[in-house]
Design a protein around this nucleic acid. Structure first.
Lengths: 188, 188
DNA sequence: GTCTATAATAGGATAGAC
DNA sequence: GTCTATCCTATTATAGAC
């Protein structure tokens, strides 16, 4: 049953994600994590003996699972590359609610907790880049071109979330979502 | 004498910047802010009666000043657009130490303190975009094209800092620095 | 597995002497 | 303008009953 977002622990991870997304790692207090999950402090420690750090780890697992199932799986299916890419773009767009929601990965990279979660961050970013690069190669790019396009795509997604947040305007994110197909598949 | 980074208050702001950059707003404790500036807690409150929030505001002023003098002023000088842009790119590259240092603006956008500093963030990002857009227009782009290129440039700078941080590899930032001239001035 | 209660500490902020 | 000492609160974390 690996994959479905069910089970109370996965449910909790989803709520915890919301809090970390909004407040960052350091800004997320146990009080809010408790309120968001509906679990008392002691229950949280029962499920996550390592405290906040364990909770964040569970959130990374949750995100990893989401990324594999919702974003990367379509890229690996058979069929038209453009259609498969669009599925992924739609998933990302929903995930960030059209640019109104922040990225937990970015938040953890730029916040004070980078060192603590560097392996998870590295794994997430490189997994995403690799999957996009493979699609670009399939669409006709060389290995090197494919990697460059994929890296630039992830750079633009992350950057647009920062800029949209800074300007308090989802338009930059939206514009990136629109130009992703040409960026990955080439200027056809 | 507006401009030179002298005076003990500006000196303090520079040290405070370092701490906020490394730990984020919530992660920066008074203990570290005190240690970094060499000022005791009470001295900090003497200079910044509003506490941490005042310190962050001073850091924003410091950044604003740096941006005007080191990054934007070259864009507005007379002379060859490509050379002026390169001056700005070099300033940014030094500022982020080739991709090894994080961006305070991005950190505040993605951290839990966005709401508190939204006006400063908005002003910084839109000032940067406007200045780059003007240069692009001067180099032959239409108003609309100029704005689009400038926005994409800021998106790529911010995104590359996130991705470089996540991968623990400055290469993505370096690659963005290299393609900025073509991005802003057009594919000539 | 969840709760109440409580410990232990770190954090932000202030008072008052110098 | 800086220091020592202190206060208050929020925060993380644990103990032990149910």
């Amino acid at each position: 049953m690996a994959g479905a977002a069910t089970g109370s622990k996965d449910m909790a991870a989803s709520r915890l994600l919301g809090v970390f997304r909004e407040h960052g790692y350091d800004g997320a207090s146990l009080a809010e994590l408790s309120k968001a999950t509906g679990l008392g402090r002691s229950s949280l420690y029962h499920h996550f003996p390592g405290g906040k750090e364990d909770m964040a780890k569970a959130v990374f697992d949750h995100i990893h699972e989401w990324m594999e199932i919702s974003a990367l799986a379509p890229l690996r299916e058979p069929g038209d590359p453009a259609e498969r890419l669009q599925k992924m773009i739609n998933a990302i767009d929903r995930y960030y609610v059209g640019g109104y929601e922040r990225c937990l990965l970015g938040s953890f990279v730029l916040g004070g907790s980078r060192g603590r979660f560097q392996p998870q961050l590295k794994s997430s970013f490189s997994g995403l880049i690799k999957a996009l690069a493979a699609l670009a190669v399939e669409a006709g790019a060389s290995q090197e071109q494919g990697f460059e396009r994929a890296e630039e795509a992830v750079v633009q997604i992350q950057g647009s979330l920062v800029v949209s947040g800074g300007l308090d305007d989802p338009a930059p994110f939206r514009r990136v979502m629109e130009r992703l197909p040409r960026l990955i598949l080439g200027r056809s």
